[in-house]
Design a protein around this nucleic acid. Structure first.
Length: 420
RNA sequence: GCGGAGAUCGCCUAGCAUGGUAGGGCGUGGGAUUGCUAAUCCCAUGUUCGCAAGGACUCGGGGGUUCAAAUCCCCCUCUCCGCGCCA
């Protein structure tokens, strides 16, 4: 959600953002609704004021044992009008909120404007692409030959894009998680394993409405949704709270399974475990003072890069263009890791500053002193590691001539072995 | 799942029987006063509408009764205690 002040004082700023994102949105309707809504608030408030005044007078007269019938009659007729007006107001308010919740976030000035194909900007590159003097396999062959994943039976049991992780790959998966948690704990991130099911209200705070359809699984007959990432549950964690300024920034390392419908991705990455309905993820989430958030954003991407350097996975950092970015983000870096089997860099990390957009939806504010005005804080999130994709990269990049997998050095103490 | 108790302003707490429009304490900020790193007193301290003056809303959430609901009625959520069930 955007600051409604911008809507009133500088709608052109929003119009520009919509254009830069190439998003269709009826801004004029929202402006009309906001205006109407405030008019109705004033009108109902006035009627309520009158009602309150009369009520007080009735109370006084009763004490004095005076007649109150005329006042009661008056207040009753006003009551009907009030009920009607309130119904109008609630209706408008509902429309307003529904629409306001779908406006995307503002865009940071450093974000390149335009289409992803031409405007996504490579910022950095790290690591040497591994060279092989034998015929390389992709991860689908590797997991088959080493009996590390059972896709067929998963399809039978759960459908496409599910998998049974097996044998040493289970350990490698856990090793990635444990390494990631140790890595972040050392950087003073608090570890959090959130609820994997959250209420609609919480989910709406973290994501934009249309993502529900494409991304989120719902539990039938319950107001519960499977999280698409721990970001959703962690963002909502401090809903309706006023945080003491001295506690900021609050940094969380979330660990959870992630569930995604992947609607509309038919045909893309159809095989293997690269694009799946369920995976584990260790996530960075920061609640920050507004003036610090851009600084925190850079710190986050640095942490992420350090992690992949330790894993010895070649990557590049991409600054997403205005049209490619998620709607809640004001600026996003993606990290793409080298995947030998695909001879390409593929997305493994998304690192975003959401400014006060989520905080407004979730009413997460802070202040330094109790009598100070509260301010919305800023939220930032980044993947550290989504295990399934990084497993793909490790298996493909660290494959050996005889068809095995070398385990990256930093993970060996976690797996207890150096080769699969 | 059953029975009982409970949820009040950032935190603690009063009010609920007998409906009259949230009081106190702590913390924090500001001010006053005072010869000492202290004490005392006053004011402020939720959301929202408004340029302002000034309103409206707010007692876990939602309905209802009433001129008027923290208070009465109904539904729901969560917490605590006991019982049952259970990895």
């Amino acid at each position: 959600m955007l600051d409604p002040k911008i809507l009133r004082e500088n709608p052109e700023k929003i119009r520009m953002m919509l254009k830069d994102r190439a998003v269709e949105f009826d801004l004029d309707k929202l402006i009309r609704l906001d205006k109407k809504r405030r008019e109705l608030i004033i009108e109902t408030d006035q009627l309520r004021k009158k009602r309150n005044d009369i009520s007080i007078e009735i109370s006084r007269r009763i004490k004095e044992k005076e007649n109150v019938e005329d006042l009661v009659a008056e207040i009753k007729s006003d009551g009907h009008k009030l009920i009607e007006l309130e119904a109008d107001r609630d209706e408008i308010e509902k429309d307003y909120v529904r629409l306001a919740y779908t406006i995307p976030n503002l865009i940071h000035k450093s974000v390149p404007i335009g289409d992803s194909k031409t405007e996504n900007k490579e910022i950095r590159r790290w690591g040497k692409i591994p060279q092989f003097d034998f015929k390389i396999q992709d991860h689908i062959d590797i997991v088959e030959n080493l009996d590390l994943v059972d896709l067929e039976r998963a399809a039978k049991v759960s459908g496409a894009r599910f998998y049974y992780l097996k044998n040493e790959l289970v350990r490698l998966n856990q090793a990635l998680i444990n390494f990631a948690l140790d890595f972040l704990a050392e950087k003073n991130y608090s570890l959090v394993q959130p609820p994997f099911l959250i209420k609609r209200k919480s989910m709406e705070g973290a994501i934009i409405a249309e993502d529900f359809e494409d991304m989120i699984y719902k539990i039938q007959d319950k107001d519960l949704y499977l999280i698409g990432t721990s970001e959703h549950a962690i963002a909502a964690m401090h809903t309706d709270e006023i945080i003491e300024g001295k506690h900021l920034p609050m940094k969380y390392a979330g660990v959870s399974p992630c569930f995604r419908k992947e609607a509309g991705a038919h045909g893309k990455d159809q095989k293997g475990i690269f694009r799946v309905h369920q995976f584990e993820k260790v996530e960075l989430f920061v609640f920050s003072r507004p003036e610090e958030s851009w600084n925190e954003h850079e710190k986050m991407i640095q942490i992420v890069e350090e992690f992949y350097q330790k894993l010895e996975i070649p990557y590049k950092v991409i600054l997403l263009s205005s049209e490619d970015m998620g709607k809640i983000s004001a600026k996003t870096y993606d990290v793409e890791a080298w995947m030998t089997g695909q001879n390409a860099y593929r997305e493994i990390v998304s690192c975003s500053n959401c400014l006060d957009y989520q905080a407004r939806r979730l009413k997460i504010r802070f202040r330094d002193k109790t009598n100070e005005e509260t301010q919305y804080l800023h939220t930032l999130n980044s993947t550290l590691v989504a295990t399934s994709r990084v497993l793909v990269s490790i298996m493909e990049n660290f494959q050996t001539k005889d068809g095995h997998i070398d385990i990256p050095k930093v993970l060996q103490s976690y797996t207890g072995k150096s080769i699969i």
